[in-house]
């Protein structure tokens, strides 16, 4: 009798929990699953008018598309350089600011200030700096150097990497500072008593405790690296110089050209790549940070 009551109670609880989940499930379905399904469907039809099923033809066309390959290569190159730099430099600054150094809060404010400036103003400043007759070239010429057309040459990526770091390091640094303050003091004290050096403490204790934050900052920076399109677009327009052409340019231009099939195929492919990257990162984090979390 008791067990039957218990069973009924559990079933009731189950029904109640499923009922509570329905709004979320419906929301996820409407706002994520269904749109993604539509995108997947669009990626396998010829065009929105005839709606003729073409299988993987759009994907084949996409991977053979020179513009897509160029955009993917440039974006991968940019992310591969800028994301690790954003993580490492932010971590370095966080460690530096953890120490008792003069003007600590001023530095912190200084590194956070790029987050508060609107993108359009930022772009204007960077244009002034890196234009053909910009400040950087003027300074270079003053010292006998040759002016470089930064935004219309192969050196364009240097500018956007600098811009990305300038914009993102401050925020990453704050995240690392918060994580550093959460490392158990007793652990550090024990290490000190055991005679551990600064490097040992950093690599074997701090870094282990920071690994979930590193993963988070890495993912955040990776996502932000795709957003650099906004700055590049404002600096150079829809069709920038070769090295500045990013995946978002491709997506944006393809959308403007009504090429939803190519756009959908690119979006699906991009999502798959991102899933793989995230999975790899999570596995790595699981391997290196599991013991610390436990």
């Amino acid at each position: 009798m008791i067990s039957l009551k218990g069973k009924c109670g559990r079933r009731g609880e189950k029904i109640f929990s499923y009922a509570c989940l329905i709004p979320s499930i419906v929301g996820v379905l409407i706002f994520f699953v269904v749109p993604f399904g539509i995108v997947v469907r669009y990626s396998v039809i010829k065009n929105p008018v005839t709606k003729e099923y073409v299988g993987l033809d759009n994907y084949k066309a996409l991977v053979h598309n020179t513009a897509f390959r160029k955009a993917a290569r440039n974006t991968a190159m940019f992310s591969a350089i800028s994301v690790p730099l954003a993580v490492v430099l932010a971590l370095g600054l966080a460690v530096l600011l953890e120490r008792k150094i003069p003007g600590k809060s001023a530095f912190r404010t200084f590194f956070l200030s790029p987050l508060m400036v609107p993108t359009a103003s930022v772009v204007l400043v960077w244009q002034v700096l890196f234009h053909n007759h910009g400040t950087v070239n003027q300074v270079a010429e003053m010292f006998g150097g040759e002016p470089v057309d930064w935004l219309k040459s192969t050196k364009g990526q240097v500018v956007i990497i600098l811009m990305f770091l300038w914009k993102n390091i401050g925020y990453n640094m704050i995240l690392f500072m918060a994580a550093l303050s959460n490392i158990p003091r007793d652990m550090m004290e024990v290490a000190e008593l055991e005679g551990a050096g600064a490097w040992y403490k950093f690599f074997h204790i701090k870094l282990r405790y920071l690994s979930p934050t590193i993963l988070f900052v890495f993912i955040l920076s990776l996502i932000n690296s795709f957003k650099i399109f906004r700055e590049v677009y404002l600096l150079t327009g829809n069709y920038p110089y070769d090295k500045l052409y990013m995946l978002q340019h491709f997506m944006n231009n393809t959308f403007n050209k009504l090429d939803y099939q190519k756009l959908s195929a690119a979006a699906v492919l991009f999502a798959l790549v991102m899933i793989v990257i995230m999975a790899v990162l999570l596995i790595l984090e699981n391997i290196f940070g599991k013991d610390v979390e436990n």
């Binding site: 053979h64 598309n65 020179t66 513009a67 160029k70 053909n132 007759h133 057309d149 219309k152 069709y239 920038p240 110089y241 070769d242 052409y245 340019h249 491709f250 231009n253 393809t254 050209k257």
Partner: peptide, 24 residues
């Protein structure tokens, strides 16, 4: 007078080839 004809041709080539290859 900001760049030479050759440089301009190279830039035009770079930018327009992207535009055209998007359509391929």
């Amino acid at each position: 007078g900001d760049c030479t004809a050759k440089q301009a041709a190279e830039r035009i080539q770079s930018r327009c080839s992207i535009l055209l290859s998007e359509n391929s």
